[in-house]
Design a protein around this nucleic acid. Structure first.
Lengths: 249, 249
DNA sequence: GTTAGTTATTGTATAAAATACACTTCTTTA
DNA sequence: TAAAGAAGTGTATTTTATACAATAACTAAC
C-alpha cells in the first residue's frame, strides 16, 4: 500500500481539500461545481472544486489556492467545517477511472478537509468570464449525483452554513459593500428557506452593531429607492445579538 | 520530501487523529493527557492521546482505536471538531526529537483530525487501574505546555464543547443513568464556568423533553434525598428547547 | 428524640425579547 | 397625474429570561 513513491515530491498524496462555495443571487442559493476533466464521456461528472495539498502548505492556504486554480475565485473567506476520511470514499467505478487517469498515485487513500463559503453570485458569474470555463452554479435543490462523496460533503456544508448564519457569522462578502435591508433579508430567507417578517427583521437588524446605515440611497430602480447599509468591523464589543430564535422550530 | 518508503505499509504517515477527552467529576472539568514515551528526561512531556491512522481505517474508527490503545477508554462517543494542518505544527525541538525517536518517517508532514468527548470521570479514573499507566486527568485551568500544537487543539476543543452543550447535544454518558438535577446543574456550571440559578435551571429542565423524572430517589446521602432523573431518547419531535440564552453575554 | 447540618424543592413578580399584524410614503414610468 | 412597486414604520400580545428566599426532608451527633 506504500504507493507514494511515484508522487510528485511536493504533493501530499493523502490529503486533499474540497470547497463548497455557495452563491447567493438575490433569489436562490446555488453551489459552485466544476466539470471534471474527463478521459471519456462516461466519466464526465460534476464535482466540488478540490485537489491535493502541497507538502509545505497549510490547509486553509491549500483551500484558497485550489479554489483559485479551479475557479479563479480569490480572496474568499473559507471556513473549514469537516474532514472526510472513510476508506471507501472512492467506491464508484467512474471515480476510480478518473483517479487512474489523473492522479500519479491513484490508489492512495485520501482524506479531504472540506471548506465552505457563501459568496455574492453576481460578482462571480461564469458568464462574466472571470471563471475557468468549466465552473457552474447549480441550484441547491437541483444538484445531480456528484463525483466521490461530494453529495455527502455538500449536505454537511449546508448544515454548517445554517449554523453559521445562526451564529451571525455570515461572511461579509455575501452582499454588495452597500446593500439594502431587503437584500439582507432575502439572504437570510434563502439560507433559512422560509419567509421572515419585514418589520421584525428590521428591528433585529437595528440591534446588530456591525450593520450601519449610510447616508445614501439606491439608484436606478423604478420604485422608492431604499436606504443603503454597510457592514462595519466590530472590535472589542462582543456581538450580543443573534438571530438564534429564527432556528428554534 | 518523499519519505514514506520507510513507513510501515499499513500506516498513513500523513494523517493522525488526536482526542481531547474532557472529564467531569461533579466539581471540575479536566482533560485527559498522556505522558509521551521519552527518550530522555528533557523530552518528557504531556500530550493529547493521538496517533497516525491506518490506511484502511476511517477517521472516526481511528480515533476510537487510538484512544483505546493509549488510555483503555472504550465506547466513548467522539465528535470530530477540526483538522489541524499547519506545516509548522511541529516546530519545537523537543517535538522533533520525539518524532525522530518514535516515528519511522519523522519528517513527514502530518495533518491531524481532532476529536473531543466529555465523559464521567469516576468511571475512567486512572486510580481504578482501568487506564494505561501514563494517563492523567488534568484540571482545565492547570494544563501545562503540551507537545506539538496540542494547547491550540485543546483551546479549540473547549470552544467546540461549549457549542455542543449550547445546542443541547451533551453526551448522555456524562452522568449516571439516574442522576439528580443538582448533578446536571453542576455539569452545566462546570462547562460554562459560571453559576446558574437553581430555580431557573429547573424550570429550563422541565421543558427538555429528553429528561424525565423517575419514581425513585437518591439513597445513601446524609441529607434530603433528591429525585432521580434519566435521559430518554427523543424520536421525531425536534428538540425545541435549548439553553442558548445561557451563552449570550 | 431533639437539634444541627445539609441539600432538595418550590413560585412569583419583573424585565426583556419575540411575534403577529397593515397601512402610508416615495420614486419611476406610462 | 395616475398606477405600479417596493420601502418604510409602530403597537399590542405573548413568550421567555431573570432575580430572588423560605420551607421540607433526611442524616448524624448528641
Amino acid at each position: 500500500m506504500n504507493t507514494s513513491s511515484k508522487q510528485s515530491p511536493n504533493i501530499n498524496p493523502h490529503v486533499s481539500v474540497d470547497c463548497v462555495i455557495f452563491g447567493f443571487d438575490d433569489d436562490k442559493l446555488k453551489v459552485l461545481l466544476i466539470e471534471q476533466a474527463h478521459p471519456n464521456k462516461e466519466t464526465h461528472r460534476l464535482a466540488l472544486p478540490g485537489d491535493l495539498v502541497f507538502e509545505n502548505e497549510g490547509l486553509d492556504e491549500a483551500a484558497a489556492r485550489v479554489l483559485n486554480e479551479l475557479t479563479r475565485l480569490k480572496g474568499i473567506f473559507l471556513r473549514q467545517f469537516h474532514a472526510f476520511g472513510n476508506p471507501d470514499r472512492v467506491s464508484n467505478d467512474k471515480d476510480k477511472e478518473w483517479l487512474e487517469t489523473y492522479r500519479t498515485d491513484p490508489n492512495a487513500r485520501v482524506i479531504t478537509i472540506a471548506y465552505f463559503s457563501l459568496v455574492k453570485m453576481e460578482e462571480y458569474n461564469p458568464g462574466t468570464g472571470s471563471f475557468a470555463a468549466a465552473s457552474n452554479w447549480v441550484d441547491i435543490h437541483d444538484v445531480p449525483e456528484l463525483a466521490f462523496d461530494h453529495n455527502q460533503i455538500l449536505d454537511k456544508a449546508l448544515e454548517a452554513l445554517r449554523e453559521e448564519i445562526n451564529h451571525n457569522r455570515i461572511g461579509l462578502d455575501l452582499l454588495p459593500k452597500k446593500f439594502t435591508l431587503s437584500q439582507l433579508q432575502r439572504l437570510y430567507e434563502v439560507i433559512l428557506d422560509r419567509p421572515l417578517d419585514k418589520r421584525n427583521f428590521r428591528k433585529s437588524i437595528k440591534k446588530m452593531h456591525h450593520i450601519k446605515a449610510l447616508d445614501e440611497r439606491q439608484t436606478g430602480v423604478n420604485h422608492k429607492p431604499a436606504q443603503l447599509y454597510k457592514f462595519v468591523q466590530v472590535k472589542k464589543i462582543a456581538l450580543n445579538f443573534s438571530l438564534l430564535h429564527l432556528f428554534q422550530e
